[in-house]
Structure formats: structure tokens, C-alpha cells
Amino acid sequence: MNNKGKTSVKFLGMTVIAMFFFSFALVPLYNVFCEVTGINGKVFQSENSQEYTAEVGRDVAVQFISSNNERMPWVFKPSNEVMGVVTGKYYNATFYVKNTTNKTMTAQAVPSIAPSNAAAHLKKLECFCFEQQELAPGEEALLPVKFLISNELPNQIKNVILSYTIFDITDYNQENLAHLEMHTEKN
């Protein structure tokens, strides 16, 4: 084969490798895209607590919905199902959770916002969904979320739904802990 052929083979081989890694690069790209546009109902932690507060706001109803992923036996429900809020002000809400089993379990809540174009305007300063919850057998807890709905919420939205699905990640967590220990040893 001539040199031109070898160059083409190299170029095509590199393209194949690059496209393979591109498929993995789609994962962070997707998350960044969701964060920037606020689509897919994804909610991320807000950094600045002052940026979105405002003196004057309008009334919005926030509904809380909880659901359990299959085979997750915990009791999980919002303390109040609906909350009247004013945009531009911080509010605290809580969710009640209880480990009904006789073993220690770890849970992770995953949030979602509806309608999806409200997601970008719901700012969370604190949320239990940013952490994992470990509960001993029979233990119960009130999980806090501190949030604000910014004044930029589109006017036609009068009602925002904040829903959480709770997952059993006990098995995952042990692997993660092993991973963390390795890190601390290094440090």
C-alpha cells in the first residue's frame, strides 16, 4: 500500500478512537447542557444566596410529591403537600422519612421539577438530595430543603411541582465507601 493509503488508515483509525471517547464525553456534555438550559427537570445546587432574592414577588403554589423506587421499603412523604410561596424569597420545607426495615440502609433521593421550564428558576440552597441518607433500623428523620423560586419564573406558571424519588443505594454505597477510603489513605 502506498503512503497515501497508510495516512488514510491512520486518520480513520484515529477517528474511530475519537468517536469512541466522544460517546463517553456525551455524558458530561449532557449534564452541562441540562444544567445550562434547566431542561429535563434537573436541579443543581445554587451558589449565591443573595443573587435571586427580591423585595417584591408574586404568589406561586409549590406542590411536593414523593415516590419510592421499586423495592424501596422506607416511608417517605412531604410534611406539607402544598406550600404557598412568594417568588424571590427563601423557604424551608421538610420531608419525613423512616427506615421500616431491620437493617441499616442508605438512600438517595433524585429530584425532578415540573413543568420543565420552571426547573431553571427553582434555586436550592440546601437539599437532602445533594447527600445520601443512612438510617439505622426503625430510625426516622426530617429531611430539609431550602429553596427559592426566582422572579424570572415565566408568568403563566402558577404552580410548580417538586418531586423526589427515593432509591435504595445500600449496595452501591459500600462500593463508594471503599472508593472514598482509598482516597483518604492517599491524602
Binding site: 477517528t15 474511530v16 478512537i17 469512541f20 466522544f22 460517546s23 463517553f24 433524585v110 443505594i169 452501591y172
Partner: peptide, 28 residues
């Protein structure tokens, strides 16, 4: 050339989710 490696990536991510405890597609 452009898309078969992406398919390979997708099934590789599945393999990792199933056997190596990653969470590419696992909401939990």
C-alpha cells in the same frame, strides 16, 4: 466510522453499569 464507535461506547457503559458499579444510566 462516525457512529459505530458510539454504539460501542453505549454498550460499554451498559457493561460498566451492570458489572462495575458505575451509574451512567442508573438514576439512584
Amino acid at each position: 466510522i462516525a457512529v459505530m464507535p458510539v454504539l460501542a461506547g453505549a454498550v460499554t457503559m451498559m457493561l460498566m453499569d451492570i458489572h462495575f458499579g458505575t451509574s451512567f444510566f442508573n438514576a439512584a
